[in-house]
Write a protein that binds this DNA or RNA. Structure first.
Length: 467
RNA sequence: GGUCCCAUCGUCUAGUGGCCUAGGACGUGGCCCUCUCAAGGCUAAAACACGGGUUCGACUCCCGUUGGGACUACCA
């Protein structure tokens, strides 16, 4: 029996859950679910100046929306400071770490000097041999080995070799007593029995340093898998400059969480030629071996296409639920409206092939719901001529005599009418469409009539025809 | 500057030495379908960065060049 898989997503609450973080979370989640493992959410908030509770909530909100459920946590590192302190003291006592009294200002100055002299910028280790704790506030640095090599056996990139001489004695405890990332991440991953560290490849260069901390404690090193970055269209790291980057922004723009998940997973991972995956398929197919080693460019067009596919394949009930908040937000429907979800589902379903987002769907739905609609002037000019209004009057008469205006009933009647007059169906359908929807694009006109119902249809026709 | 990573159509990718006349998807053009718009179907243009090796044979392996990216904090 092998050790159970335990993975974690460890964002720092210094911003919303963004696209890149969401993908890291997703790959961790998939790996856990695929291997019947445990997925842990851990908040890395050791930077007290930049971390906020609002961002923690935003991250939780984003993960919840994407349906990336975690089994443990969220843990917060600020709750564990005494733990880190104890571990740091142990390293000091064993001579594996030391106090450093160099001030940030001094360090910065030396760094600048080294940079302009084209020298390596790493800490020079001048406090390395200090034994006692100094009187003044001091940071604690980890004593890195200066010889030999460290090899990271990355599950995605293969073995990566680092010369220990390029690793600097990093600060593990600040002079104010708070621990730093590269230290706590190791302590937590051990305490939480993490077996696979799956994270962005911006952490590759940190990994050998972290490995030395594991070794200083005599701990077993977990497996590492570094995911390539997500880039913007200009190939630089994805940022706000490239448009929306927060997960909740996509929610608000009317994207379906499953569509985003599907898009994100295909960024860097593939399973043959398959493009669309259900969650179950994803869990079934996912493997880290299938993850590519190179960075990928975020392509909003393809996300939009996927979203369309997911909308098309949704059930009426699911669409009704999904579109309702957007109808309320856009003012098309009152928050306390008692609209039938059954009817709403039918209406939404009729628009599924012409809505790339839920926002587009809600916008189009106005003609099903509004008391009155504005008619596009150009459409009116082209399609509501005296001749076509005459035709509409005949349609009105016909509909008025019906009790059932379902498509199955009305369509053959209008077809007959067109044939009898030697007209193409469009000659009647387009004026009808303009009269009923205010524009020239809509679902099939008989479907529209059925959904609107007799009363609303006649009302709209009356406004156009007059009398 | 140093360290590390990466490199197939514009983009996401398939490809694990012969199956490649390099496949799929998004986007783009054309055609079909059609009451509009979509959706859908068919179709076209579009790539192995470059140079050396290795091999009977390289998109696939090795080296170099070039080009991208990440890190280089008492941020994470």
């Amino acid at each position: 029996m092998t050790t159970p898989v335990r993975v974690r997503f460890a964002p720092s609450p210094t911003g919303f859950l963004h696209i890149g973080g969401a993908r890291t979370a997703l790959f961790n989640w998939l790996y856990a679910r695929r291997n019947n493992g445990v997925f842990i959410l851990r908040i890395e908030d050791t930077d007290r100046d930049r971390s906020t509770d609002e961002y923690i909530e935003a991250i939780v909100e984003g993960m919840t929306w994407l349906r990336l459920d975690w089994d443990e946590g969220p843990y917060r590192q600020t709750d564990r400071f005494d733990v880190y302190r104890a571990y740091a003291d142990r390293l000091i006592a064993e001579g594996k770490a030391y106090y450093c009294t160099c001030t940030p200002e001094e360090l910065e100055e030396r760094r600048q000097r080294a940079l302009s002299a084209n020298q390596p910028v790493a800490y020079d280790g001048r406090c390395r041999e200090r034994i006692e704790k100094p009187a003044e506030p001091a940071a604690v640095r980890f004593r890195m080995p200066r010889e030999g090599q460290t090899i990271v056996n990355d599950l995605i990139k293969g073995p990566i070799t680092f010369e220990n001489s390029v690793l600097e004695d990093m600060v593990i405890v600040r002079s104010d007593g708070t621990p730093t990332y590269n230290f706590v991440v190791v302590v937590d991953d051990i305490d939480m029995k993490i077996t696979h560290v799956i994270r962005g490849d911006d952490h590759v260069n940190n990994t050998p340093k972290q490995i030395h901390i594991y070794q200083a404690f005599g701990w077993e090193v977990p497996a590492f898998a570094h995911l390539p970055m997500i880039l913007g269209a200009d190939k630089s790291r994805l940022s706000k400059r490239h448009g929306a980057t927060s997960v909740t922004a996509y929610r608000d723009m009317g994207y379906l969480p499953d569509a985003l998940v599907n898009y994100l997973v295909r960024l860097g991972w593939a399973h043959g030629d398959q493009e669309i995956f259900s969650r179950e398929e994803l869990i079934q197919c996912f493997s880290l071996e299938g993850v590519g080693a190179s960075a990928s460019v975020f392509n909003p067009e393809k996300l939009l296409w996927l979203n369309t596919q997911y909308i098309i394949n949704s059930t009426p009930g699911a669409l009704a639920e999904a579109v309702l908040p957007f109808l309320v937000k856009s003012g098309i429907l009152a928050a306390d409206s008692d609209v039938s979800m059954d009817w709403l589902g039918k209406a939404a379903y009729s628009l599924r092939e012409r809505s790339r987002t839920l926002v587009e769907m809600a916008t189009q739905m106005h003609y099903y719901l509004a008391a009155d609609i504005a008619i596009d002037p150009k459409a009116r000019e082209k399609h509501l001529t005296p001749e076509s209004i005459q035709l509409l009057a005949e349609v009105r008469t016909m509909l008025a005599g019906l009790t059932d205006v379902s498509a199955a009933v009305v369509e053959p009647l209008v077809h007959e009418m067109a044939v009898a007059k030697g007209l193409k169906l469009g000659a009647i359908a387009q004026p009808l469409r303009v009269a009923l929807t205010g524009g020239t694009a809509s679902p099939g006109i008989f479907e529209v009539i059925e959904i609107m119902g007799k009363e609303l249809v006649l009302q709209r026709l009356n406004r156009v025809i007059g009398g």
